[in-house]
Simulated assay, not measured.
Amino acid sequence: MIASVVGLQALALAVAGVVFTFAAFNQPSISIAGAVFLIVLVFALAAGLAAVSVNAFKGFRWTRSAAFVWQLLMVAIAVPALLNGSTLTGLVMGVPAIAVIYYLFTPRVVAYSLRTGGGQQLL
């Protein structure tokens, strides 16, 4: 479940990067450098989250901390959205993040992520 939610978040970031790219070509920008930086940053985050998703599916332990930090950032964005009246945006960003945070600390996920990947168990 964690890998799929993080994978969907990576896909959403990639779609946002494509939207930002089209907007950079179709709308006037105050700062071209800022627009390029934002596009590169969003695509880099999408690639990083995709790597976390794939490696979480494989059972690598480092993915738990990366997924946890990303979900904390999502909650930090969702709470102000909820408080400012953007209920749908806040729920879409907050509910999956809280679910992933919960599941990251369940015994099954912790046991699964103690592997080094490739089906090998650590002793």
Rank of each mutant, 00 (worst) to 15 (best):
Val40Met: 11
Val69Ile: 15
Val40Thr: 09
Thr63Trp: 11
Phe60His: 13
Ala67Arg: 08
Asn55Cys: 01
Arg64Met: 13
Ala56His: 07
Ala51Asn: 05
Phe57Cys: 08
Arg61Tyr: 12
Trp62Phe: 15
Val69Arg: 12
Leu49Ala: 04
Val54Cys: 00
Ala50Arg: 05
Ala46Ile: 04
Ala66Phe: 13
Leu49Met: 06
Phe68Met: 15
Val52His: 00
Phe43Asn: 04
Phe43Ser: 05
Phe60Ser: 10
Gly48Ile: 03
Ala51Glu: 06
Phe43Asp: 04
Ala66Gly: 14
Ser53Asp: 00
Val40Tyr: 07
Phe68Ser: 15
Gly59Val: 02
Ala66His: 11
Ala44Phe: 10
Ala66Asn: 11
Phe43Pro: 01
Val40Gly: 02
Trp70Gly: 14
Ser65Trp: 15
Gln71Asn: 15
Ser53Trp: 04
Asn55Trp: 01
Ala66Tyr: 14
Leu41Tyr: 09
Lys58Phe: 03
Gly59Arg: 07
Arg61Phe: 11
Val52Tyr: 01
Trp62His: 10
Val42Gly: 02
Ile39Val: 08
Phe43Tyr: 10
Trp62Leu: 11
Ala66Pro: 11
Ala44Lys: 05
Asn55Arg: 08
Ala66Val: 13
Phe68Glu: 14
Ser65Ile: 13
Val42Arg: 03
Trp62Ile: 09
Leu41Lys: 02
Ile39Pro: 01
Ala66Arg: 10
Val69Ser: 13
Leu41Gln: 07
Arg64Glu: 12
Ala44Thr: 07
Gln71Cys: 15
Thr63Ala: 12
Arg61Met: 11
Phe57Ser: 08
Ser65Cys: 12
Val52Ala: 05
Gly59Thr: 08
Thr63Val: 12
Val42His: 01
Ala67Leu: 10
Gln71Glu: 15
Ser65Asp: 12
Phe68Trp: 15
Ser53Asn: 05
Leu49His: 00
Phe43Ala: 04
Gln71Phe: 13
Ala50His: 03
Ala46Thr: 04
Ala56Tyr: 06
Gln71Ala: 13
Ala47Glu: 07
Lys58Ala: 10
Val40Asp: 07
Lys58Gln: 10
Ile39Trp: 03
Ala47Asn: 05
Trp62Glu: 10
Phe60Asn: 10
Ala67Phe: 09
Val52Phe: 01
Gln71Gly: 11
Ser65Gln: 15
Thr63Gly: 12
Leu45Phe: 00
Leu41Arg: 08
Gly48Leu: 03
Val42Phe: 00
Gln71His: 15
Gly59Pro: 05
Phe43Leu: 10
Gln71Lys: 13
Trp70Cys: 14
Arg64Ile: 14
Arg61Val: 10
Ser65Met: 14
Trp62Met: 11
Gly59His: 09
Leu41Met: 12
Ser65Pro: 09
Val69Thr: 15
Val42Lys: 00
Leu41Trp: 09
Phe60Arg: 14
Leu49Trp: 01
Ser65Leu: 15
Phe43Met: 06
Ser53Gln: 05
Val54Gly: 03
Arg61Ser: 14
Arg64Asn: 13
Gly48His: 02
Val52Asn: 02
Trp70Val: 13
Val52Trp: 00
Phe43Ile: 03
Lys58Pro: 01
Thr63Arg: 12
Phe68Asp: 14
Ser53Arg: 01
Val69Pro: 11
Ile39Thr: 00
Leu49Ser: 06
Phe68Ile: 14
